[in-house]
Design a protein around this nucleic acid. Sequence first.
DNA 1: TCGGTTCAGAGTATT
DNA 2: TCTGAACCGA
Length: 724
Amino acid sequence: MNSLLDHLNAPQLAAVTLPPVHALILAGAGSGKTRVLTTRIAWLISNRQVAPPGVLAVTFTNKAAREMQTRLAGMLPINIRGMWIGTFHGLCNRLLRAHHRDAGLPQLFQILDSADQQSAVKRLLKSLNVDDEKFPPRELCHFINAQKEQGLRPAAVEAWDDWARKRVGLYEAYEAQCQREGVVDFAELLLRSYELLEHNEPLCRHYQERFRHILVDEFQDTNKLQYKWLKLLAGGGANLFCVGDDDQSIYAFRGADVGNMADFEREFHVANLIRLEQNYRSHGNILDAANAIIRNNPSRLGKNLWTEAGSGEPVRIYESCSDGDEARWIVEEVKALQRDGHARAEIALLYRSNAQSRALEHALFNAGLPYRVYGGLRFFERAEIKHALAYLRLIANTDDDTAFARVVNFPARGIGARSLENLQDAAKAANSSLHAAIPQVAGAGGARLAAFAQLIVTLRDAAQLPLPELVDHVVELSGLRSHYQNEKEGQERLANLDELINAAASFVAEEGTPNQDGEITGEFGNDLSSFLAHASLEAGEHQAGEGDDALQLMTVHSAKGLEFNVVFISGLEDGLFPHENSLTEDKGLEEERRLMYVAVTRARQRLYLSFAQTRMLHGQTRYNLPSRFLDEVPEELVKWLTPRAGRGGFAVPSAPTSFGSTPRRSESSGGSGFRIGQSVMHPKFGLGVIVNAEGGGTDARVQVNFGVAGMKWLALAVAKLEAA
DNA sequence: TCGGTTCAGAGTATT
DNA sequence: TCTGAACCGA
């Protein structure tokens, strides 16, 4: 047992061996957070402070949950299945399946992913004849989710004008539609299970008494509802052990509320705030840079990373003329790194927004360097997979209109918009599902619809087949297989459908067996419905090809939690990073700074920061100032690879020839000596870049981006502009 | 039902 | 500039 605690540093040890009390662990980047979390659980169990069923561990991603499970399995000689370890959504799903009746849901309720939700909303707007210009489906979804994440049902939402009242009405109608169809969206999983416990005292007490230790990963990412959910479950005297890092809170835009950390500390009278500040990942200079940057944020809980690893290399900064130049420079640098023996997979190219990957990919492709871009379509989000799943969903529940609408005419079977409209009217009149309304539709369209209904019946007859065979059967009988066989580029899709059959097989092998942890029975309806839930809750790997030695390209957001020997952070320009939209948001700049902090702390040995004077964005050449975050890195940590830019000597204006091929207006403004893209100094506004010019002679005006001070039009005859 | 055209929008993302 | 979605005509 002692080996459990070997090699823990003092604060880690203190956290792991805390007595049964509430605790907040402030875990800096690379400080062994997951290790503390898992060791804590293992320690509690091996010291008989709690039995496995008394443990509830919550994460945000399936990946994190899996990692925790794997590590625990390696630490404990016992079966860990009695513990509840999973994502918020996965655990809520589990609760709702077990108590579907109390929660007011059919046993086989389906889970809508974001795309499904949006199409459900579109369908709703259409059926209610609502103008989708006034209520764009995207925004409406966002609104609905935001309300749910605050725990607000329509009746509780405040609305002051007609438009707002109408919007709340749509929220209400959406709920009714979901209820009728027997489907729940992601936010509903949370809210519904919260309400289930809140309104059902015996049940709530059951779980409160069961879970003695509740452990939360990435606590800074919890939203209001998730925090309430935790509070409710811990209300029976369980111990809440929350691990998080306020400096790495980068998800406010999707509802995360860092304030939960301070609230938790206060509301639970947390006497044990433990800081994990020793970093096992990065060299000293990198950490010092990160510390210096984040120090500019007010109202932090406070933390300073340190390492025993030595200061290592300086942080390298590179200035280039254009985004293309930046990409080419990165390529050359990567080649040099390769010659020095660095594996490509250990080099990451990070950027603030996805659009920036294009220039990088272009240069990498031309240089023949293998790379892998994170993000994008995932397995269960592919069209062919969603089609197959829609048939499976109809087998499980014919009332699932989202699934129905998706495949009623796919592959094409002559059921056009007209027939569908008739069907929708009939369904609305009878307040029934689309499927149930089929007999009401007459004519040729009605006949074709009836044939489709018959297809579903035939498919349902196969429902008792083993799951993989059922999937195969569905792919065949639905016509999906022959459809893609006849399509020119259907080969990959066919392969994906085969992969779906494989996925079903391995799902049954791994998870399809009934749970035997003495749980309240009826947790999952059957293999089919649990497979469908799995498909919704876990969209699958981003892309294959993980094995090859490829450069890693991703946004800073997706890099959170990862680490690399070498990291490039590109596009460090004001407006891009920090993103311009963030400047007008409340606490926006602080979140961007945390994002920068996350980016910097991904690097183990070497960190490159780069920016470009010009960048093509939305079809226009933009002239940006270097990111203000660059100024926050102390000089003594930095090695400039190009002559130093910035204060006073914003230097190295590149040769004019290196500018974009077609300047939008005259490049010089009337022989004034200034040109677009040039850095200038203004006595009041400071350093800026000329981004546009008008007029000439005594009438010459230039538009200058002064970064923090904003964008200004200045008359050259009046303004005291100097070349900088 | 398809292919082409037009138009808006362009930030980060897990479940 | 580029993309994806919506739309229209054959």
